[in-house]
Design a protein around this nucleic acid. Structure first.
Lengths: 258, 258
DNA sequence: TAGTGGTCTAGACCACGTT
DNA sequence: ACGTGGTCTAGACCACTAG
């Protein structure tokens, strides 16, 4: 059996004399192909992707290799496997995953009861240096700035400022935000085709500015948990910068390390 | 080939009429066996465990099954694979893993330069209700309470109170803490055979108490990041409660979500 | 050159959900 | 009964490390 052909398919090219670590296993290549299909919209959020067998045939590899590719995407929450049913594209609309980036919890009997948010403003402004660099924008291009207050169990708990690259979110308006009753990331997914997959956060303790204290109904200078987030879509492309100030009197930010 | 024997080995017992979800795949059973070997000390921190082939023979399963068991332990940072060398038991003494539970970072050129800590006190006190419950202690049993200040790049940055179940840490003293120049979890590992593998944290923003403000050289009431941690060893057994107050002026707590 | 983990295959069977 | 993901096997070969 001629395996050589397949080996060639691996980018095991040893052209340059420099020790380029350019070996990429087959399953990584399959993973990339799947990611392309996801990014291009061939497989849409919520839909079932072809079975492992079908994909194995399509890509001309064994089922086990497809499996390992899907395993990784599944671990990254890009795909969701359901035994007996199939493998599905993750979506921010499922209740189970809706608030996977909101880590607030409480020790009280039944956690965060209800959450809703009040939009304060939604403006287009010129991107500053940091925003241009993070989003890869040119001088003069704009960002959309959303300000809002989130309520957890009917108590104001979070003040947020959200910055989005305008070119990818054209048409996002105050009216749309107040009309659509869905979480922000669900709205990004459905209205703008922007799927946020991963984010990095920086946490600090800060004093409440006067303006924010008013919204959260606390005293100026009270301690707040500051969370600066950058969220990424396919290809590690940043699509959101978010600065949140969290009241941690009744809730805490939970994290597990290992 | 008689596969039935192996199938019986799986705890696929359908004895009770209740729908007990008692199916455990072979690789999970192997994983448990490996964990037992680790807990019992057959494989010690830093040592290499037998090769996948050897383990396959020992457990009478295929190499792929052993592999999947090791995969999970490796993902949990219990084992560390090194291609071409072998699979090793994780230890808190390797520089790469030494501070894996300390998530403070900075955007400055070269991160956290130097860290050391000053022990303030080390006392045995009677365990309170919470501590008894978390550690599984009886009324009257004790906990060891360590108070210390940590310095990051020579600046006081963290005030911590650490509580340990006394029965597992007999002999831990102020003298030992000030003598041994190693991270705490490394000391737990080497002196008490306690390997901390995982922890849960609760983060809040709080105001600096007078006492703590003094140690951190800040004003009383300044905002501090409070981190309450419970750390676990094998078998999800809690072995440490830690309450830390972090100055986040120059550093932040970094986190990645997906 | 030998030994280890890492990849890949082909095929079998099991557990789960739906029809 | 059928299709899906989940487990398991046996064997081959590749990539990396060290003696």
């Amino acid at each position: 059996m001629n395996k050589t052909a397949k080996r060639v398919a691996r980018s095991s090219s040893r052209q340059s004399p420099v020790a380029v670590a350019s070996f990429s296993p087959l399953y990584k290549q399959i993973k990339d192909l799947l990611l392309q299909s996801l990014e291009s919209g061939e497989f849409k959020p919520g839909e079932m992707i072809p079975s492992e067998q079908e994909l194995a045939v399509r890509f001309k590899v064994s089922q086990g290799t497809v499996r390992k590719a899907i395993d990784e995407l599944s671990a990254e929450n890009v795909l969701i496997r359901r035994q007996g049913k199939g493998t599905f594209v993750a979506t921010h609309h499922e209740p189970e995953v809706r608030y996977r980036f909101l880590r607030m919890a409480t020790d009280n009997p039944e956690g965060v009861k209800r959450t809703h948010s009040e939009i304060l403003s939604c403006d287009e402004i010129e991107a500053n240096d940091v925003q241009r660099q993070v989003f890869g924008l040119s001088v003069g291009q704009k960002v959309i700035c959303i300000k809002r207050v989130m309520y957890l169990s009917h108590q104001p708990a979070v003040y947020e400022e959200i910055y989005l690259p305008e070119p990818a979110f054209q048409g996002l308006s105050f009216a749309l935000l107040t009309t659509e009753k869905m979480p922000l990331y669900g709205l990004f997914e459905s209205h703008f085709g922007v799927q946020l997959l991963r984010c990095d956060e920086k946490l600090r303790a800060v004093s409440a500015p006067k303006e924010v204290a008013k919204y959260l109904k606390i005293e100026e200078g009270s301690p707040l948990l500051s969370i600066e987030r950058v969220a990424y879509t396919y290809g590690e492309k940043a699509m959101e910068i978010r600065k949140g100030l969290y009241l941690t009197e009744h809730y805490y930010y939970r994290n597990s390390l290992n």
